[in-house]
Every structure is written in C-alpha cells, then in structure tokens.
Design a protein around this nucleic acid. Sequence first.
DNA 1: CTAGTTTATGACCATTTGGTCAATAATTCA
DNA 2: TGAATTATTGACCAAATGGTCATAAACTAG
Lengths: 188, 188
Amino acid sequence: MARPREFNEEQVIENLMKVFWDKGYEATTMSDLVNASGLLKGSLYGAFGDKHALYMAALRHYDRTRIQAGIDMLNGEGTARQKIARLFDNVIESTKRGLFAGGCLLCNASLEMAATDRDIKNEVKTTIRRLKVAIMEALQPQVENEDQAASLAAFIVSAYFGTRVLAKGGAPAAMIGDTRDHCLQLIP
Amino acid sequence: MARPREFNEEQVIENLMKVFWDKGYEATTMSDLVNASGLLKGSLYGAFGDKHALYMAALRHYDRTRIQAGIDMLNGEGTARQKIARLFDNVIESTKRGLFAGGCLLCNASLEMAATDRDIKNEVKTTIRRLKVAIMEALQPQVENEDQAASLAAFIVSAYFGTRVLAKGGAPAAMIGDTRDHCLQLIP
DNA sequence: CTAGTTTATGACCATTTGGTCAATAATTCA
DNA sequence: TGAATTATTGACCAAATGGTCATAAACTAG
C-alpha cells in the first residue's frame, strides 16, 4: 500500500543494541546510532522513535536473544550444577577473550538507568524475573521444595550479576572462578 | 602568600561525589557540578581540573569515606557472620527507604566507566581489592586457611555487588535477603 | 605601600547534542 | 494513470555541552 522499508528491522536493532551494550545509554549519541544502523536520522526516528525508544527496543532485543539463549541453555541438557557452571563460564570466557567490553546489557541498564527511568526499570525487573524463574526450574529436580529453589535462584542471580561487575572492574578472573565454585557447592 | 580558598575542599568533594553517585558520569553535566559545589565554573576547573578529574576525586572520596566505613565495620566487633550480614543489611535498608537511588558508586563506576577508562578501572580495581582483603580478614578467624578465606571473600564481594544490581533493577527485596542468607550459610 | 601570587568571577566559545521537517521517492490499489 | 500512503533524504535548529580566559579581588612577604 506504500513504499516498503529498505532495511531489515531485526538486523538494524541488533546493530543498535550493540552500541548501547558497548557504550551505555548516555555515552551513546544519535550520531553513533545513525552510523551503526546504516539509516539516516530521519528514518531512524520514523521507524523506531527517539533515543529512549531505541534503547527500549535494544533492551527487549537483548532479552529476546541473549537472555533467551541463556534460558534455553538452562532448559537444555545436563544437571543443574552443569547448567549453572556454564552460566559463569560465559563470564569467565568473555573476560579472558577481552574483545567485547559490554559485559551484560541487563546489568548495565539496571545500574545506569533503572533508578531514574521507570520504563527501563520495568523492563529490567521483568527480565530479571524471567532469568530467576529459569534458574529455579533448572534447580527444581534437585532441590527439596519450591521455596528452596526460589531462594537459591535469587542467590545465583546475585552472584552472577556480581561477577559482571567484577569482570568490568578489572578484578582477577580467579575471583569469578571462586564465585562460581562456591555457587556450585550450594547446589545439591 | 596568596589569596586563600573560600571553600572547604572536603565538603565540596563530598557534594560533587553525591551528584556522580546519583546520576553517573555521563548524565552529570558541568552545570550540575557547578550547582552542587557552590563554586563557579572557573573555580572548579582551577581547583580540581576537568570533569574526568572531578570524577576521579569523587571515586577516591567514596573510597576514603563510604568504603572505609564498611571496612571499619568489618574490622570491628562481632563474628564474621554478623559483619557480613550487616553488609547486606545496608543494601536491604537503603532499598526499603528508597530515598537515595545511587546504590554503590563503586559498582556504578565499574559498569559505566571501567571498560573504557583506564584510570577509573585502576581505581575500581584497587578499591575492590581493598574490600576483598577486609572481608578476608574478617573471615580468617573462622576459616581453615588463607586460600579458603580468599575464595570465600571473592564470592561474598560478588554476591554483594550483585545485590546492588538487583536493588537498582527493582527486584524484590526478598531476593536480596535470600542472597544474604545463602552467603551467611557458607560462613563457618 | 608594593610586588608577587593565588583565587574568584562570569562572559564567552566552538562543538555537539537530540530532534524536526519539507521535499522527494517508492510502492499499491483502483 | 493517478491518488493515497509510507519511506528516505539531508538540511536545519535551538539548546546544551565541556571548557577557556581576561579581569578583578584577596592575601602575604618584604
């Protein structure tokens, strides 16, 4: 019925997300986003809205792709302990490679934006719950009751997020390994 | 020998720090800092340097005051378990009060700035080590050997930082309580 | 008092910021 | 073909950004 879009929306959002992931919200300029998207400013605004809307789209995309990949892994093969170990190993590995400095966009968004932006806080809150529930379900088979699984899952999410802070802060990789090992000890 | 300063340097840095603590580096403008300091722009630059230097001063001030207060507490009275519990209770309390949204400036700096700013990364790294060592020393009396204390301390720092991420992200306070409880379980 | 030194003041600046818009180009339906 | 609708383009904008600087003011040693 009208002129069709010339870009792949999913691909553009993936590229936009990487900028926010790498630099954070405030340090990212519209100019950065224009470059990363390949679109021109007017098209970006027309298609997605303003900078805040772009960030929201990036957050949702992160949830749909990266977080979901973690959840799929938690739903996959292996013992609870193996799955949780893999979660931390991702952090250790990406720290050692040291190529992409973004860390975890969810953590970044939580600390940079959630305190002052209601929309972002809601998105973050929802995604944290999703992750926690997936961990709970991975723990269920090996744990006495649901409350046990819930509190253990909360604790694992904390420790996991903590390793993201350590990794970016340049703490030795051993601290992350130690954190992982202690977490695994607590899983029956 | 010359005109004396008209302001209390310590007080000004305290005020500057609070702005960075509350808003982060990028979201803070020189105008914010001018307002918070009570000085005029020229004086601020003359006395402390540019925005980056102000942030570094703020980070060091945070270390000298807030982090040090935590370390003093860890060096004070009580069992290791009581001290670690108090660490987490601070997070829970400040979450419940909900007045000041800054969370932990060290965590904020780590996620917002450490990946792209070498100076800040070094400062963060140093402060994390300081905190870890203090936790280690609090654990020493109740733990078999030094390695045990070190790995347990690394783990507690992770969990602690994780609760800071959860708190800002609007996760339920119960998750922070659960994290604390599991951490305490691991302390002999 | 004077010379020398540091601090305070606020006007000033180039650049960058996020954002808009009118004109033009594709497309579909009738 | 032509009307209707949506996309693309890039020039344009006001406001805000981090930062500088010449001048005036306050102090001390001699």
